[in-house]
Design a protein around this nucleic acid. Structure first.
Length: 408
DNA sequence: TCTGGGGTCCTAGGACCC
DNA sequence: TCTGGGGTCCTAGGACCC
């Protein structure tokens, strides 16, 4: 069988590059890619971490996901710009759409990354490496930002290759290059080997990917159990997984929110949960999916995470039904601790609601959902707060009543 | 003014049934 | 009688990715 040819395309400093373009378009004099700058959340509302960094910021030691205050310590002149997710999704869509012309087998891996399966296309594209350069250059010309392209015989190698040297580069990691290009790297650089695994691997003397590739599998199994084979294969550059174009099939939808200050007032938390349930179910209906599992996610003021979940008797996309379950879960799981982050997750999603309900219940559910869909539409057209369900108003009132009572 | 948000997948352990 | 064990479903928690 012929070797596969896979491209991995990765936008360099995506959020920062895309924001830079937006600012330039709007007449901003600076290109934030050329100064020490980061995209980050607001520190005031406790969202202050680095989401993306410019190359000058990187040179000062600024890393992704660190607190902004810490980044500022490393770089006194650091400039912080807010994220603009709508714009990012727009740019993402534009890029993926453009890349489709090169292969129908495209898998979007994240907002700024995708795999292209180019196997068997050599009758169109004679030279894959030249093609990759052409794509890279055309993206720069057409859209104004740079990408890295990694080429390999499978997704793993393509992904590893695109990570080699940045920005604006094409790298290959074919089978016969693994020993030379991949094995010398620290084991933590291997895809899917994170902090915890790195620690464990280092502790048993595995420092490089080569060490892992050559390590006795039986001994490895003691520590990594069922993951051993996958781990070992990765180190050897083996990966059979296919490039699978996914049609907006998600297995879960969630919304979490770091609160501007810790909250232990149950009414307030329920209010937030209601808002989140509305949004998350709106997304669910948008995707034309139904959920069977509802969960609440908490992080308390000590950064301790916990969660609780429960199953619904039947798949649904009904806000009321789901919110009822959310409250149920909340009452059983909330530990009365000050909450820093709270969120709602819907899991076990399906495209159909195969259910056996009594006719009455089903009618109620459908009638209700029809109303919600109309509300979704109106909100989409006129802005989020145009139509507010009565239940939210009731919650608002009860809160006011309580505040009034508190003042007395 | 210290530490985000949205995902996927895996595992341990308990409940329950036969 | 001195305490099985397999299978399945479910939940909580954690690792990992961007």
């Amino acid at each position: 069988m012929k070797e596969r040819i896979i491209f991995h395309i990765d936008v360099n400093n995506a959020f920062l590059s895309w924001s830079a373009i937006l600012y330039l378009k709007d007449g901003y004099k600076k290109d934030i890619r050329e100064i020490p700058a980061v995209i980050g959340g607001s520190e005031k509302s406790r969202h202050g971490i680095v989401l993306a960094k410019s190359i000058p910021a990187k040179k000062k030691g600024v890393v992704t996901a660190e607190p902004i205050y810490q980044a500022k310590k490393k770089c006194k002149t650091l400039e912080v710009y807010p994220p603009d997710y709508r714009w990012y999704y727009k740019k993402s869509y534009e890029l993926m759409n453009y890349l489709k012309q090169y292969s129908p087998l495209i898998e979007q891996y994240s907002v700024d990354e995708c795999f292209l399966d180019m196997s068997g296309m050599d009758y169109i594209y004679k030279d894959y490496i030249k093609l990759a350069h052409d794509i890279k250059d055309e993206i720069k010309e057409k859209f104004g930002y740079t990408v890295n392209i990694g080429i390999g015989n499978n997704k793993l190698c393509a992904k590893m290759a695109s990570d080699f040297e940045k920005p604006n580069k094409v790298h290959t990691l074919f089978k016969d290059e693994i020993a030379k290009k991949m094995w010398p790297l620290p084991v933590g650089d291997l895809f899917m080997v994170g902090k915890q695994s790195t620690k464990l691997l280092n502790s048993i003397g595995i420092k490089t990917i080569y060490d892992l590739a050559k390590y006795d599998e039986k001994k490895l199994k003691k520590h990594f159990k069922n993951q051993t084979e996958h781990l070992k294969n990765s180190a050897l550059g083996i990966d059979e997984s296919k490039v699978t174009p996914r049609s907006n099939i998600t297995t879960s939808i969630s919304i979490t929110e770091t609160l501007p200050y810790d909250i232990d007032d149950q009414d307030k938390l329920k209010e937030i949960l209601f808002r989140q349930t509305e949004e998350v179910t709106r997304q669910l209906r948008e995707q034309k999916q139904y959920t069977k599992t509802v969960a609440i996610i908490y992080k308390n003021s000590n950064f301790i995470n916990y969660s609780a979940q429960a199953k619904l008797p039947n798949p649904t996309d009904n806000t009321k039904t789901i919110y009822k379950k959310v409250i149920d879960i909340f009452n059983k799981s909330y530990k009365e601790d000050p909450i820093r982050l709270i969120g709602v997750r819907l899991a076990e999603l399906s495209k159909t609601k195969k259910q056996q309900l009594s006719l009455f219940e089903e009618d109620e559910d459908i009638k209700d959902t029809e109303i919600q869909k109309t509300v979704d539409k109106i909100n989409k057209k006129f802005g989020a707060a145009s139509v507010m369900p009565a239940s939210l108003k009731v919650i608002g009132r009860s809160r006011n009543k309580k505040q009034f009572k508190d003042r007395k």
